[in-house]
Design a protein around this nucleic acid. Structure first.
Lengths: 150, 150
DNA sequence: AATAGATCGTCACAATTGCAACTAAATTGA
DNA sequence: TCAATTTAGTTGCAATTGTGACGATCTATT
């Protein structure tokens, strides 16, 4: 008599890092997304575009895409949507007329400033639930991952 | 004269946990996905379905969705695709005829076993690049997150 | 200059996903 | 017992996303 009952599945998803990482990221993203969706009706690509511009001031669509790993059509559409609401405007670049220099309008900056606060509050809430230990570990682990990708 | 040059953006994406987590998860997922896509032409939902079934043996579509957080239509389509390739089969449940008990075929199990190996190799490669320290931290951080979600 | 090749952003179209309605079957409870 | 509700899975349709081609512009090479 042997290993009939001892058959172990070749892969346990709950222990598999890409799976765990993905599930955690997805869960957090959705929670956070519900905030900016409910408060400002923003989609994920729109929020990312807003946040990237808010942080860097003036950028091209391509630069936004490169920084936040979004496809250029996604950025293009998000830019259009934000422009419609007058939260963003395009400025022709005199030196290179293919380029559009994108910038938040005052209204856009206001939304951004508010959402930045929401983001910090969200993060603080999250971290407080991880405890100082969990926070330290998570941040260090992420840093290790990020170093690996570079 | 004051803080013209000291203006800090309200939110630094590179420090924002949901953003970091998401980018890391996305980067890893894509790398791993390229493996099962190239080797077996599987999509993400298909791989997830295969892996879940491989781990648990027999499950309903609903159970697969619940476990891997996939929408039921996504599961339905993935099941259909795997069935087409004879990697999965449905068994009517005699006690409850609404239910389909899904199970990998021998061919499906073979693919699964192979991909499980690929998965472990992938994870091992990743972990070796994080070092024992990074591995420990990342796993602990994820565990803290997972505990929070529960 | 002039041509070839690269880059920026957009659009049409195709593939993927999500939502809501649906069929079939089981459960509930009056 | 049988109508009302719930559950499992599929399908049609709408929204979202990705792909490839495009016009416009810039850069490099000759």
């Amino acid at each position: 008599m042997a290993n009939e009952t001892t058959e172990k599945p070749p892969l346990i998803l709950e222990n598999f890092l890409p799976y765990r990482l993905n599930k955690a990221a997805e869960a957090i993203s959705q929670r956070f997304a519900s905030l900016y969706r409910e408060q400002y009706g923003l989609t994920r690509p729109e929020w990312r575009t807003l946040a990237t511009l808010g942080q860097f001031g003036v950028l091209t669509a391509t630069a936004i895409g490169a920084h936040s790993s979004m496809h250029k059509t996604k950025v293009s559409r998000a830019v259009f949507a934000l422009e419609q609401r007058y939260w963003l405007r395009r400025k022709r670049d005199e030196a290179d007329r293919r380029i559009e220099n994108l910038e938040l309008t005052p209204a856009g900056r206001k939304v951004y400033a508010d959402l930045a606060k929401v983001a910090h509050a969200f993060e603080a809430e999250l971290l407080s639930n991880l405890g100082p230990r969990g926070e330290k570990e998570l941040k260090a682990g992420l840093a290790a991952l990020e170093a690996y990708f570079r």
